[in-house]
Amino acid sequence: MLQNTQINSIYKLDYQLGGMKGRATQLTSLRTLLGRHVDVLWEPGSHKYNVSSFIGELDEVLFGAEFSEFTDEMLDTLISALRKRGNSNATINRKMAALSKLLRKAHKMGDVQSLPEFKRLKEKAGRIRFLEPEEETRLFEAISEKSDLYGRFCIFLIDTGARLGEGIGLRWQDLNRDRATFWLTKSGKSRSVPLTERAAAAIQASERTRRGPFTNIIQAKFRAAWNEAKQEVGLGSEPDVVPHILRHTCASRLVQGGIDIRRVQTWLGHQTLQMTMRYAHLASGDLDICVPILERAARAKTA
């Protein structure tokens, strides 16, 4: 493994200008660039927190190396290190997306002289886990026993498909009769969704003294309660049973219920249809009309 001094000696390069050696470009690091641009590039919320964690990890991989140019070699070093840490291509793509956004801003502001070529890694479709009705009942009952607020929050999330940060960030003024509007979203675009009866009841049971129905929920404490309840109901061995499964479950139920994929995309607030297409296979009922045709063909062959 390269030592800190070795990496710095590799990346502390002067640049040539017009055939003459120009003055050395001021060196910087990923952590420095993050501190300089994070508030401009990302709004407050869980996504900003995740991005900061990603960039911090990448800076750690480079041993805090300072540079004036971010090279393809540096990018390869990061991807190789993340793979050795067990990161999937999907996870690496998310981290590289944050890095690309930061570096493009830094390049525009003159902090970095050149950028590498970012190529999206091929992602596996993977299996999407969602809760069966019986699993939902057991899990929600166990969570509600620990905290009524947490139990109501779970109901709200599974019936709206909201992300944790979106639900916690909801304000009373964002609620209009039977609809909820999420302003602080991952895509940066607001969206409104209608509320089910039980989602509306979950909201109304919250204290009006708070800025929003779920604003006093701390994610770390909620996740801890979730994991305890998950163990108690026999789901502790399933790594995919995390709070985000509530969003998957909402999407799955919409598709299985016959809602077209475009409407599901709008409901979830996905930036691209490709993200929503992960659930398309659940609409298998559309293929049922194919069976009689195949059966008639089979009977005709044996007649």
Score class of each variant (00 low, 15 high):
Met1Phe: 07
Asn4Gln: 15
Thr5Ser: 12
Gln6Val: 10
Gln6Met: 10
Ile7Phe: 10
Ile7Asn: 01
Ser9Gly: 04
Lys12Ile: 09
Lys12Asn: 15
Leu17Ile: 15
Lys21Trp: 12
Thr25Leu: 14
Leu27Trp: 08
Ser29Asp: 11
Gly35Arg: 10
Tyr49Thr: 09
Asn50Phe: 12
Ser52Gln: 15
Leu58Pro: 01
Glu60Ala: 11
Phe63Asn: 15
Phe67Lys: 13
Glu69Met: 12
Leu75Arg: 01
Thr77Phe: 12
Leu82Ile: 01
Arg83Lys: 04
Lys84Gly: 06
Asn87Val: 09
Ser88Ala: 14
Asn89Lys: 10
Ile92Ser: 02
Ile92Gly: 02
Asn93Asp: 03
Arg94Thr: 08
Met96Ala: 11
Ala97Ser: 12
Ala98Asn: 02
Leu102Gln: 10
Leu102Pro: 10
Ala106Glu: 03
His107Asp: 12
His107Gln: 14
His107Asn: 13
Lys108Gln: 11
Met109Pro: 08
Asp111Ser: 13
Gln113Thr: 11
Leu115Ser: 04
Lys124Leu: 09
Ile128Glu: 05
Arg129Ala: 05
Arg129Trp: 05
Glu132Arg: 05
Glu135Val: 00
Glu135Ser: 01
Glu136Cys: 00
Arg138Ala: 03
Arg138Tyr: 00
Phe140Ala: 00
Glu145His: 11
Asp148Pro: 14
Tyr150Ala: 07
Arg152Asp: 15
Phe153Cys: 06
Thr160Met: 04
Gly161Ser: 06
Leu164Glu: 15
Gly169Trp: 06
Leu175Glu: 02
Leu175Tyr: 02
Asn176Tyr: 11
Asn176Arg: 13
Ala180Glu: 04
Thr181Phe: 07
Phe182Leu: 08
Trp183Arg: 15
Gly188Ile: 09
Lys189Asp: 02
Ser192His: 10
Ser192Leu: 14
Val193Met: 12
Leu195Val: 02
Ala202Gln: 03
Ile203Leu: 05
Gln204Tyr: 05
Ser206Pro: 00
Glu207Thr: 03
Arg210Lys: 08
Ile218Ser: 05
Ile218His: 03
Gln219Thr: 08
Gln219Val: 10
Gln219Asn: 08
Ala224Arg: 11
Ala225Asp: 07
Glu228Trp: 03
Ala229Asn: 00
Gln231Tyr: 08
Glu232Cys: 00
Glu232Ala: 04
Ser237Ile: 03
Glu238His: 09
Pro239Thr: 00
Val242Ile: 12
Val242Arg: 11
His248Met: 11
His248Phe: 12
His248Asn: 13
Cys250Asp: 01
Ala251Gln: 05
Gly257Asp: 04
Gly258Asn: 09
Gln265Glu: 06
His270Asp: 05
His270Leu: 07
Thr272Ala: 10
Leu273Pro: 14
Met277Asn: 13
Met277His: 12
Arg278Ser: 06
Tyr279Met: 08
His281Pro: 11
Gly285Ala: 13
Asp286Met: 07
Ile289Asn: 14
Cys290Gly: 14
Val291Ser: 08
Ala300Phe: 14
Lys301Glu: 08
Ala303His: 13
Ala303Trp: 07
